[in-house]
């Protein structure tokens, strides 16, 4: 691994300053970034650890729902929101393995926006707000394709606000070796309608299945989507599953999530 200077600021302001001086890269839990750096696929002159910033950790109820500090680990989220937002707790508690959940963070996952990660579907289906050091970004504007987000250079996620739906569920069809989502569907029913977000399936990363949202907003039951089909045209096709297989999984898992919600 290429060497770097390691800095661990204690405040958001110091972190932003460090990230905006020269070739710097933010490091959260590191459960993706460190493996990527070992392969020589990422690196920077300075690595700025975000895990020493107290104001970026923890879960509380606030305006608009649950406020989750970006540097909060998956294990902590799974524990802290178990009663307030069980579907999100289940998502967080199913990421990777226990060791990964003790280090990996919600902000790290959303900043990376892996097309098969769990959190992007939870954030998009919840209509979450991504709060950064300089602005608030609606989830609908935040996810911009494969590993692409609305974040600017040197901008860090400090907090994520999750509105709490009336009913919700996340169902993931696991890739058994990595436990990433071969396909995962998060369904969230709000007073104003239903949101369905799919991860692991599309070449463009997480997306909303708007046809299902319309059908489920009128009738929140698995039967409501039985007549729909998902276009396999832009689905991921790899050794784990073909595009058609994933397209079918989107529908099957959506139905399961509605039933489970």
């Amino acid at each position: 691994m290429q060497n770097f200077d390691f800095v661990k600021p204690a405040t958001i302001a110091e972190a932003v300053k460090a990230l905006n001086s020269g070739d710097a890269q933010a490091l959260s839990g590191g459960q993706t970034l460190i493996a990527t750096m070992k392969q020589g696929l990422a690196g920077a002159e300075t690595l700025v650890s975000l895990t020493g910033i107290a104001e970026m950790k923890g879960v509380c109820q606030g305006d608009g729902g649950l406020h989750i500090g970006a540097a909060t680990s998956h294990a902590t989220v799974a524990r802290e929101v178990a009663t307030t937002y069980p579907a999100l707790a289940k998502l967080a508690g199913g990421i990777g393995d226990p060791q990964v959940r003790n280090r990996g963070t919600v902000g790290g996952s959303l900043a990376n926006n892996d097309p098969a990660a769990c959190y992007p579907s939870g954030a998009l289906a919840s209509g979450a707000t991504i709060v950064t050091d300089r602005r608030e970004i609606a989830a609908d504007d935040y996810f911009q394709g494969l590993f692409a987000t609305a974040l600017d250079e040197g901008e860090i996620i400090t907090k994520v606000i999750f509105p709490i739906p009336e009913k919700a569920a996340y169902v993931k069809f696991e890739q058994p070796a990595s436990r990433f989502a071969l396909t995962g569907v998060f369904v969230a029913k709000f007073a104003g309608g239903v949101r369905v977000a799919v991860t692991g399936a599309s070449n463009d990363g997480v997306f909303r299945w708007t046809e299902a949202e319309k059908a489920l907003s009128a009738n929140f039951s698995a039967a409501a989507i039985s007549g729909l089909s998902v276009d396999a045209g832009n689905m991921i096709s790899d050794l784990h599953g073909t595009a058609e297989y994933r397209a079918n999984l989107v529908k099957v898992l959506t139905a399961r999530a509605v039933t489970a919600a």
């Binding site: 490091l27 294990a75 060791q99 003790n102």
Partner: peptide, 29 residues
């Protein structure tokens, strides 16, 4: 392994199981 997957390097940091191959020493100061 060199891919953060095998867990043979698991230690406890402040009581929690963590893969010691997937955290920089400086981050555990």
């Amino acid at each position: 392994c060199d891919t953060s997957q095998c867990g043979a390097c698991t230690v406890h940091i402040d009581g929690k199981a963590v893969k010691s191959c997937s955290i920089f020493a400086a981050d555990a100061a």
